[in-house]
């Protein structure tokens, strides 16, 4: 464990807590894409298959439970909670996220480190995580008015993967056999998808104006 990875995990944890806090306290999911949340639940479900078979550390197991629990409860809130679901904007959240799942699955079957069920599922979760934010970014472009919590949620989500890139660079130089091109490339693609959001987020923060994304 290194500081970049720990900071990345904490930033990732903060992003889901900000989202849960928003939904739980103001009982609203306005501006949140259910599709992105469903994709994230699928990412964790396919990545943490080793939850009960490979024990790595208490930290690792605990964080996996938190990420699984929070992502599925966020989906539950938006889908079934009688108050929250009313603020879900399904007419705007129209990204066909199934078109993301299939290509990621096919790609995982083609390009993976080892052709086993667990390894293909793990690779699928990496590819899917890289594109999972797209429905959310599309929704932000459409709804234009980004409330603070949603902006912070997306920012933290992007920052966590950027910190992971620093972690991969650190591990590459400190651990002789640590080479994972698939992880690195999908992580880089994921972070690049946030690039324009980061730009507008910092612009709004610097000029102290409300965050607006160009149409």
């Amino acid at each position: 464990m290194n500081i970049f990875r720990f900071a990345g995990d904490m930033t990732h944890l903060a992003s889901v807590l900000v989202l849960l806090l928003k939904i739980h306290t103001i009982k609203s999911c306005a501006g949140i894409s259910l599709k992105t949340q469903e994709l994230y639940a699928l990412v964790f479900a396919t990545r943490y298959l080793d939850l009960f078979t490979d024990y790595i550390s208490l930290y690792n197991t605990l964080m996996k439970l938190i990420f699984l629990g929070s992502s599925f409860s966020i989906v539950w809130y938006i889908r079934y909670h009688k108050i929250v679901r009313r603020s879900y904007d399904k007419d705007q959240d129209t990204f066909r996220h199934y078109f993301l799942v299939l290509p990621c699955l096919l790609l995982a079957l083609l390009i993976n480190e080892k052709f086993t069920f667990r390894e293909v599922m793990w690779t699928f979760s990496l590819y899917l995580e890289a594109v999972a934010i797209l429905p959310q970014l599309v929704l932000l472009q459409r709804t234009r008015n980004i409330d603070n919590l949603t902006g912070q949620y997306v920012f933290l989500l992007g920052a966590y993967r950027a910190l992971y890139i620093l972690n991969w660079i650190y591990r590459y130089f400190t651990e002789p056999h640590y080479v994972h091109w698939i992880t690195w490339i999908s992580g880089l693609v994921q972070t690049l998808l946030y690039a324009d959001f980061f730009y507008y987020y910092f612009q709004s923060w610097k000029n102290n104006v409300k965050l607006e994304l160009p149409a």
């Binding site: 990875r5 490979d54 790595i56 690792n60 990420f67 640590y178 994972h180 992880t183």
Partner: peptide
């Protein structure tokens, strides 16, 4: 195990 495959990350 997970360590060797590098899947020790979240």
């Amino acid at each position: 195990n997970a360590e060797s495959q590098g899947h020790d990350e979240l």
